[in-house]
Amino acid sequence: MGIESKLGNMGVITTTLENVVNWGRTRAMWPMLFGLACCAIEMMSAQASNYDMSRFGMELMRPSPRQSDLMIVAGRVSRKMAPVLRRLYDQMPDPKWVVSMGDCASCGGVFNNYAIVQGVDEVVPVDVYVAGCPPRPEALIHGIMTLHEKVKGESIKEWA
């Protein structure tokens, strides 16, 4: 595995608690199984055979918000859906993160009209925006890797 080279004679490694906790958080970040529109199909593609997000410890999509760490807002959020989305976010336990997938969720996309919330950041705090209409699965995976980088730099006191 390569990790045994770090063992030395004592079988001890030194690191900070924060590093260990954040490493654990990035390696088992469970997304919520929650698709809205077109982007949800690309999210499914990212989960399926060709792209396989389980390489990043994400094979489990949890249908319940109470078991998930990451909300991927995949698609356009209508005004009718916005309260539901906020409620789901509130039900997720800390620590939790939000990826806004696609143009519609990020800024309204091509739909500048009465029905669509112009950016899901009006409703929930967003950590990473992924551009594209819809973003390719690679783009979603890149967004999640970016989120992992962000989580690695977080202080655990932020969520305490």
Binding site: R76, N113, A115
Partner: peptide, 10 residues
């Protein structure tokens, strides 16, 4: 209606 997008009007 949870995904009503106003496509026709647009």
């Amino acid at each position: 209606g949870f995904l009503h997008t106003g496509i026709e009007k647009n």
